[in-house]
Design a protein around this nucleic acid. Structure first.
Lengths: 207, 207
DNA sequence: ACCTGAACACCGTTCAAGT
DNA sequence: ACCTGAACACCGTTCAAGT
């Protein structure tokens, strides 16, 4: 299986590597098939042997972005912790949220975090249907927030040269706190759904 | 097809009208400057007299999509009702959520619903900072959910001809219920934040 | 005030053909 | 199994020039 000449031939992983490099340097607007081919020193058409089209290639990039680093022992599943980890993965790559959002919407990507969020919601006491909805709700919040954040980061860079837009530095600096505050609301809402269903009344607060 | 009289000059509103028509027929992927120009029976370059670039034109389209029909008497501001109205506006136009999401992220669009959501959150008892965060959280949920939903609607149409993907019809049919369920969680979380701050809750900050 | 005509520098995708 | 070369049908944007 490894008798192939290691010289100029690429595989899917290599193409994704190249795409990640183009993404880091040029962002989504500059992530073209031709640019990826250039990095690999190959014709554009060569990419179509590895992937049927650009969206599928982008989905493979997205998959790498959201791949969980730790397959290790899962501590108690915690909604906020899983959401925060997802956000960090998205932030680690330029335009990560945009890429993942689009791959997800096209049904070309499965989100490992979503499975974990669903498990956490179940563990918190939600029924199966509600747990799925809760997981999606958290995912929409995280991706929506981070997408917005990353686009504004880019706008800030362009705007700096442009001198037409200026964001207060504080507005950017404390975006982590703002994310956490919004996340806390969503998580509180999910917890409220846990209390509502199985118990007998609306206000069966055990804590 | 139905070109305007050759003598009639266009204005910004007319260009947006044309763009809305192209959007309805071709969706975002087919919403090109050339197609818009064709509808107006005009050269592409003519569009650049009205708008500095495509993104600004798209922001004007987004603005029309989210414009509130009723400037009328505001009943008691209700988070869920405002969110539902926003979703309906987005669903009324093909790829509406995608368009609005991108204009919003680029800072080219102000969302009337956001102002109303903020007011509703204040009325519910949140402080000013939290009300803004609550409004953004609801907006992220609504846009994220609807974006995902609309992309899947299109994928379903393509997939039907494609015969490669099939969504359970039930999955699509009850998407309204699923939206409401997720929204209920978010709204409950916002309400929880109202109870926490001003009273004698967990963190009693002197103010 | 609003538009034409033409160009520039790009795109994604296909396909016969090569090795 | 993996790639080349060339083509096709598009893009957004600019700009001198027209009325």
């Amino acid at each position: 299986m490894n008798a192939a000449p290691a010289s100029a031939r690429n595989d899917r992983a290599g193409v994704v590597d190249a795409a990640m490099r183009v993404l880091a340097e040029n962002g989504v607007p500059g992530l073209s098939m031709r640019r990826i081919a250039d990095v690999l020193d190959v014709q554009v058409s060569a990419l179509y042997w590895h992937f049927p089209n650009k969206q599928t290639l982008l989905a493979a990039v997205s998959e790498r972005i959201v791949a969980l680093a730790d397959e290790a022992p899962d501590a108690a599943p915690d909604l906020a912790a899983i959401a925060t980890t997802l956000r960090e993965r998205l932030l680690a790559q330029r335009d990560g949220a945009e890429l993942v959002s689009s791959s997800l919407a096209l049904g070309l990507l499965e989100l490992p975090s979503r499975t974990r969020l669903e498990a956490a919601a179940l563990a918190a006491g939600l029924d199966e249907a509600s747990a799925g909805i809760a997981a999606d709700t958290v995912v929409h919040y995280v991706i929506g927030y981070t997408f917005h954040e990353q686009q504004r980061m880019h706008a800030a860079v362009v705007g700096a040269a442009d001198a037409s837009v200026d964001l207060a530095p504080a507005q950017i600096a404390d975006s982590g706190d703002t994310f956490d505050a919004g996340l806390a609301m969503v998580v509180a809402g999910v917890r409220a759904a846990a209390g509502a269903h199985p118990g007998e009344g609306i206000a069966s607060r055990s804590r």
